[in-house]
Structures are given as C-alpha cells and as structure tokens.
C-alpha cells in the first residue's frame, strides 16, 4: 500500500517538476492579437458590424464575442482571413457575398445641404453649400451613412457599375456540366 502511494506520488512529483521546467523554457509570448485583427479590418469605421468602429470590432473578435463574418464590406475574403488568424473554422457558404455598392446622388432631388459631406468618413462626397453634391466612386466604400442622413433621400446605394475596365468572364454554368 505504502509503496503504491509512494511510487505514484514520486512519479507525479517527477513529471510535475519536469513539466514545470519545460514550461519555463518553452514559454510563448502572446501576440498582440487585437492589433493584428484591426489591421485586417477595412478601417473605414463604417459601423455596419454594430460596433462603434474597427478597433472595437477587433477587440470583440479577439475576445471571442463576435463572429469572423461580422464585416459586410470585407465579404467572404475577410471572413476567411479573420477565421484563419483566430484559428476557428467558419461556414462561409452562409455568408451572403454582398455585392459591393457605391453611393449615387440623384441630382434632381439634392438640395446641397452638406450633411452627407460631414458624415462621409473617406471624403468621397464633394460639393458646396446649395450646390449639387457628387460622389467620387473610386474612394466610396459603400457604408451607406450618407444615404441615411440625406433629408431628401437623394442618395441611394447602387451596385458598382460594370465597365470594360472591371468586367470579367462569368463562371461556366454548372447545369451545363455533365449532361
């Protein structure tokens, strides 16, 4: 009885000591996860995820309080990148691939109130007081804030127009396959 207890205790102490030494030598410093996640996020502070900005979203992600699919402008690519960094797997088939949109000003209704200009985080709207505003499509990231504040509903979100510069071949129709 005593030998049994003794030898088990001895084994436990031995392994415990060895593991303790090992953990000292193999210590890993935690990466600044939050900063890395924030760098991945678009940084346009659009707030579509429900958090105040990208930094807040990053800390929620790091704390495991948000899903990697939280960012609509980032789409599937970002969700996959976030999931990989977090070491979790996500089902991307559910995430709707949002068609990228840009703001469009209906020039007949715009009254030149300048409210949208103040709300645009990337200065994509230009125009003066009482002058019709216009959108620089190239830097509009489609957050839709301007459309919400426009008092005359002159701004709507439209899909990015297809031009000769961004057109590409569509995927072959799978129904055409195997028949």
């Amino acid at each position: 009885m005593l030998t049994a207890v003794g030898s088990l205790a001895m084994l436990g102490v031995t392994f415990g000591t060895l593991l303790g030494i090992a953990s000292r030598y193999l210590r890993v410093d935690e990466n600044p996860l939050e900063a890395e996640l924030e760098a991945l996020l678009p940084g346009s502070q659009c707030g579509q995820c429900g958090f105040a900005g990208c930094k807040q979203a990053a800390s929620a992600l790091a704390a495991g309080q948000a899903k990697p699919t939280l960012c609509p402008p980032g789409g599937r690519a970002l969700a996959a990148a976030l999931a990989e960094r977090l070491g979790v797997s996500v089902d991307l088939s559910d995430t709707e691939e949002l068609e990228p949109e840009v703001a469009f000003v209906n020039e007949d209704i715009c009254i030149g109130c300048m409210r949208c200009l103040q709300d645009c985080s990337s200065d994509a709207l230009v125009g003066g007081p009482k002058q019709i505003h216009t959108v620089i499509t190239d830097i509009c990231h489609g957050c839709g804030k301007c459309a919400k504040v426009c008092p005359t509903e002159a701004i709507e979100m439209r899909p990015v127009p297809i031009t000769l510069a961004n057109w590409h071949w569509h995927k072959p129709d799978p129904r055409q396959y195997m028949n």
């Binding site: 060895l18 593991l19 090992a22 953990s23 193999l26 210590r27 890993v28």
Partner: peptide, 8 residues
C-alpha cells in the same frame, strides 16, 4: 510536454 513544444 508536446503541446508546449508545438505551441512554441
């Protein structure tokens, strides 16, 4: 031990 080593 392996877990620690892999993590490192």
């Amino acid at each position: 031990f392996t877990e620690m080593a892999v993590r490192r």
